[in-house]
Write a protein that binds this DNA or RNA. Structure first.
Lengths: 219, 219, 219, 219
DNA sequence: TATGAATGAGCCTTCATTCAT
DNA sequence: CATGAATGAAGGCTCATTCAT
């Protein structure tokens, strides 16, 4: 019976406070989230029942709720497990102060690599995008997405400002790049023809070429 | 999801046979499909109940079933309403026998324009991609998708064969282009800064530039 | 999926608008409420499952929800079915402008009779009193209870003002009377030794006697 | 509710046998029971989860079960904590051999005082009355209630036999008195206008007045 | 003693679908 | 054609209870 006036403070599973137990709790919670990501990716979030997660995790229904609070919170956890390390990596990269184009390539490389290792999470993220964009309890995830896009745009902008490249339409280029990588989970296979590294470089070549092309034309 | 071994002969709504009635029936069915596309796009297919469609269409539950057979068939209808005219347009284009690059630009233009006018359908299509790719009753829709991708690849290949352009990695380029356009519904707005035409040309510039860049470097 | 910010606007079953259907709907809804009152009274509200109501009403679970919106709304409906006619009767009585003591006896008679014919509702009302008094969605029911108590108090006050009786402590007397009648469902049996009429008069005798007693002592 | 045919030998928490430990155990058990009474009174027995008791007692779930055996046994303990001292007090009173009316006033005083100090227990008792009256494992509590009502009736009967008062309908009077006091928890507040003593006397005045009234009329 | 992880039955509710009218 | 009453199988979630630690 959720209390009055707290419509979005979802029942949250309460972790133990003693540090030793807490560590085990966190580990198992991560397991649950990872299992869920795989099942959600295959069947879709809505088409996945708690019973399906029961099979995937080896926990009974009640056991799952020991860790997640609600099915939707589990979905949020999956998205966080996608975005948090990505943002952390990108932030660390920014701190390295690489030359502009090098930084862009590093950022795209990081990102493509992350998508490759988090294919399930990424598929789920895309599937549920309409929810993420509209509902209040998704604000944090939404903010992460925006934050990353801002960092990507900034990397492109630096290329223009400090790297001597000029995009015909930087905004369009950024959205194009975003699309290329977001679409990756639909076709990337771990032992496919191209490594994440190669894919990332290929994408960078594509978006940087017109820019350099332009340079040559307007010296 | 319908269990394995169950015949996929879904209950199909039976349209009237007399032509006059048939026309009206088809018109109303299209209305239902269009309404459904909008609601599915906003809430997601699974999160949309027949009651929601009841609100959106003005028909009562029973009335909707006059036109759709089942909720999943309605989803298929939405996807067909997306793919059928697109494929028809692309096929007509092929028949025009334009010069390679011109044909590519026309194809992408057609496609981007279609996405712009069918944003809802496109969102739904992407959301339910995991179902489309895996389940038997979706074979036809799946085939349409593959068919379009084949036509796109062929257009790029023609550019190489007959247009004198050379892609560093044509397959990667095609997948990149696919991603750019598939991602369009996430940011395109009808009265935004760029028209569909401009977006399409921008994308083509991006993928063609490295190719031309290459030409210049390897004369 | 209850919308944001509307925590207490419970899903309400939507009755049909066409008058003929509406009448049938209301009749059946009343049946459901009456059945529920009986089961709630015997087992308690919380201990009663929807399955129990399924047995009691002959409707399947979904059918019940066609009429009630939620289990709690059903509980509210039971309380309304208790309070609404009682208040209506009491209001009609007030309009009759009877002499004070006669009016009091009529009011208590009405009330005791109502409890006798609505034993189940009354038992439920008492059982769930803690909810009724505390939760927001119960405001209306709470208001009805208060309204009736006000009318009872006014009847006693009129006896003092215009009827020449004087209570040692009118407030205590009112609360006593309230207790006597509220306790009725615990022991009243339809074909018991005393009729509702007799019970009501007996209670009135009890509360009026000290008042008259007093008169005699202080002439 | 526990199904029929199941033996009512509920799991009972086993207290330690060594007297020193036993004393501490009993003390803590009483704390648990008192906390439970408060929570049950506010939320209702069924609406209270073990987790709620966890919050109220500071013990974890397992800890609570050291003291209570089962949730229902806890409810029984709450009722026992209400009835046992009341019966003990009433029995002690009987042994004092007071004059009839004095004894009645003393008994009602004792009772009202007890309700005032055990408001929570009383509320719970009333809420769960339907269970108490019907289920087998509640026989003991039921017997206590009947025993007290018998003592009350006897006190009234003594007033008639030996005190020279005559009730128009003693049974009805007793039930009225029962109702007045049972209803007390709904309105009594510790620092209200009337003390328990005053309330008890007020109630006695009310029920005794008609009796004396009668005497005067039929000398 | 006390903890908290884990169970699994059961609860309320939703929903696609059918069918008499 | 269209309605809305009705079904019944899930679905998400809760909760009393147990048990290894």
């Amino acid at each position: 019976m959720s209390g009055p006036g707290r419509p979005y403070i979802d029942a949250v599973a309460s972790p133990p406070t003693r540090p030793a137990l807490r560590a085990r709790y966190d580990r198992r919670r991560d397991d649950v989230v990872a299992s869920a990501a795989a099942v959600f990716a295959e069947q879709g979030y809505h088409a996945t029942s708690i019973a399906d997660l029961t099979d995937a995790t080896g926990l009974a229904a009640g056991g799952i709720y020991h860790y997640i609070g609600s099915k939707e919170q589990l979905l949020i956890a999956v998205c966080d497990a996608l975005m948090d390390p990505l943002l952390a990596g990108a932030t660390a990269l920014e701190a390295e102060q690489l030359p502009p184009e090098e930084e862009l390539r590093a950022l795209v490389g990081l990102w493509v690599g992350h998508v490759a290792t988090h294919r399930d999470h990424m598929v789920v993220f895309q599937q549920e995008r309409h929810v993420i964009e509209h509902e209040r309890q998704w604000r944090a995830v939404r903010a992460s997405r925006k934050q990353f896009e801002r960092m990507l745009d900034e990397a492109l902008a630096r290329c223009e400002r400090e790297g001597g490249v000029h995009f015909a339409d930087r905004d369009l280029t950024m959205r194009g790049l975003l699309g290329m990588v977001n679409h990756l989970p639909q076709w990337y296979r771990p032992r496919g023809r191209l490594s994440p590294r190669q894919i990332a470089d290929g994408f960078c070549d594509i978006v940087l070429a017109p820019a350099r092309d332009h340079m040559r034309k307007t010296p």
